[in-house]
């Protein structure tokens, strides 16, 4: 098993941290993991993307030509990465702010209304966890328990009270794409 994933959007949308949580979940699930950010000077507002590879065997290159799965959060990233999804692969995207929806027919395209859902949950910070839930529903590469274990590992103790909220967001995301 090997899953090559790109998560791309604006800085501040939780792109890098979503990738990080996924990577930690991979670690908890005994997988090999690489997390490779396209780092930039901007903390917020610039484009941000991260390549996460999860594999049950060793990973040679952290840089790949194409992806099994893409999680796309803005138009620029859609324009850039839609064509890089492997045939038969999966593209999840949030239609919020997307003017030109993806058009490929040889991949599974999954719209996820994560922005609207996070508004409904009254917490914008759940945004990326909703997307993660949707991703795991479509591509069950790691069990949700591994994600929660990963959260417990990465979040500082003082933020552990937020874990149930994150769990809720993941479930909401899963339901969105059922």
């Amino acid at each position: 098993m090997k899953e090559e994933i790109i998560i791309a959007g604006f800085g501040g949308q939780g792109v890098l941290s979503m990738g990080k949580i996924l990577a930690y979940a991979g670690l908890m699930h005994d997988l090999e993991v690489t997390w490779m950010p396209a780092y930039g000077p901007e903390q917020r507002g610039g484009t941000a993307n991260v390549t996460v590879i999860l594999s049950d065997s060793s990973i040679s290159s952290p840089i790949v030509d194409s992806y099994d799965t893409a999680v796309i959060l803005n138009q620029q990233s859609l324009d850039k990465f839609e064509r890089k999804v492997k045939p038969g692969g999966t593209l999840l995207y949030d239609p919020y702010g997307i003017h030109h929806a993806p058009t490929r027919t040889d991949i599974n395209i999954v719209p996820v209304e994560a922005m609207l859902k996070s508004v409904e949950l009254k917490n914008a910070k759940t945004y990326n966890m909703i997307l993660l839930g949707a991703l795991l529903a479509k591509r069950p590469i790691v069990p949700v328990e591994a994600v929660i274990k990963g959260l417990r590992k990465t979040l500082p103790e003082r933020h552990h009270h937020l874990i149930p909220l994150n769990e809720q967001a993941i479930e909401a995301g899963m339901k969105l794409v059922e």
């Binding site: 670690l27 993991v33 997390w35 490779m36 780092y39 952290p62 840089i63």
Partner: peptide, 10 residues
């Protein structure tokens, strides 16, 4: 290189 500085791995 910047890649191995910035990437996370086990």
């Amino acid at each position: 290189d910047g890649i191995v500085g910035q990437m996370m791995e086990k």
